[in-house]
């Protein structure tokens, strides 16, 4: 039992406050060594999860940011062509046979390791964060499936490279595209919600220890209520933290003090034009009043 409930407090110790479902999910990821797929709105702290896990496990975090058109050369390996050319030149007068040169320049020394290869050839299991997998295309997803099931990479010139350690894989998705069922089946799944009042308060306190206590609870109350408004893009935790930092910088001690300053600082929370327009001074002061 002691092992099971371990990860929550450990996460808290590195400054990441996880709710129960998430800490269970992370615990299972570590126990079962299966990839974890995290979904949720932007800004709920999916990427931070991986960073926190790496800190808890005291291991490296290898991050692969996905984008459309991502392919093997930028995710697994690439040969270092410049170095290869130089090597060929340097050995010109050694009178080596071409096959001998070939053997030399297609060796590990000339291999540029990209994140996926890097992740499976570490001494200690790293945390592999595959960020925004929904941005990559289907072809990459299929490729990833293969890697996640076998944990080995085949390089034609070198042969098959087996994983020296299995990375803890965390995939995040914002749901801009449906992921394949095959990928979903292979992963553990957790949906990350916006934090509730208490948890968000804890997060703000953990991240900004210098923040005044009453301002912190006002900020959290304000943001919690703001999320209930009809917005295009709800502010995430990152936005809350930004805003809190901004308010400190603007020397605001209470949201009720200076409505104009607070209204102008809304650019930290609301990131689209229509959202900004839908939060005029009146709404801001009403929410501030509620929070206080």
């Amino acid at each position: 039992m002691s092992v099971i409930n371990d990860i929550g407090p450990k996460l808290a110790a590195v400054g990441y406050i996880a709710d129960d479902p998430l800490s269970v999910a992370l615990q299972l990821t570590v126990d079962l060594a299966r990839p974890l797929l995290l979904e949720g709105e932007a800004g709920v702290g999916k990427t931070e999860t991986a960073k926190a896990l790496a800190k808890v496990l005291d291991t490296r975090l290898i991050r692969l940011q996905c984008y459309e058109g991502l392919d093997a050369t930028s995710t697994i390996y690439e040969w270092n062509y410049q170095k290869q050319l130089l090597a060929i030149r340097a050995r010109e007068h050694d009178r080596l046979s071409s096959s001998a040169i070939e053997k030399q320049i297609f060796s590990e020394d000339f291999l540029l390791r990209r994140p996926l290869l890097e992740a499976i050839s570490q001494e200690k299991s790293p945390v592999l964060l595959i960020d925004e997998i929904d941005r990559a295309d289907e072809e990459f997803e299929a490729y990833l499936l293969e890697l996640l099931s076998d944990f080995q990479v085949t390089i034609p010139e070198l042969g098959t490279i087996e994983a020296t350690s299995r990375p803890y894989v965390i995939l995040t998705s914002n749901g801009t595209r449906e992921l394949s069922d095959a990928l979903r089946r292979r992963c553990l799944y957790s949906y990350v919600e916006f934090p509730d009042h208490q948890r968000e308060h804890d997060i703000v306190r953990a991240r900004l220890p210098d923040l005044e206590a009453n301002l912190a609870s006002e900020i959290v109350g304000f943001v919690q209520n703001l999320r209930k408004e009809d917005l295009e893009k709800k502010p995430g935790i990152a936005e809350t933290l930004d805003w809190a930092a901004a308010l400190v910088g603007m020397e605001v001690h209470s949201l009720l003090d200076d409505p104009d300053k607070v209204t102008s600082s809304m650019i930290c929370l609301l990131k689209t034009e229509s959202d900004l327009k839908s939060a005029p001074r009146e709404l801001v002061s009403r929410l501030a009043g509620k929070a206080a």
């Binding site: 039992m1 269970v24 299972l28 079962l32 979904e39 749901g175 089946r185 957790s190």
Partner: peptide
């Protein structure tokens, strides 16, 4: 998974199975 260790609390089992079995938000 369930037989590998003493059964934890109901709440815990629920969360664990949820993580294991759900595939998307609807199922979650």
């Amino acid at each position: 998974h369930l037989s590998s260790k003493p059964l934890p609390t109901m709440q815990r089992v629920r969360l664990e199975l949820k993580t294991l079995l759900a595939g998307d938000r609807q199922e979650w």
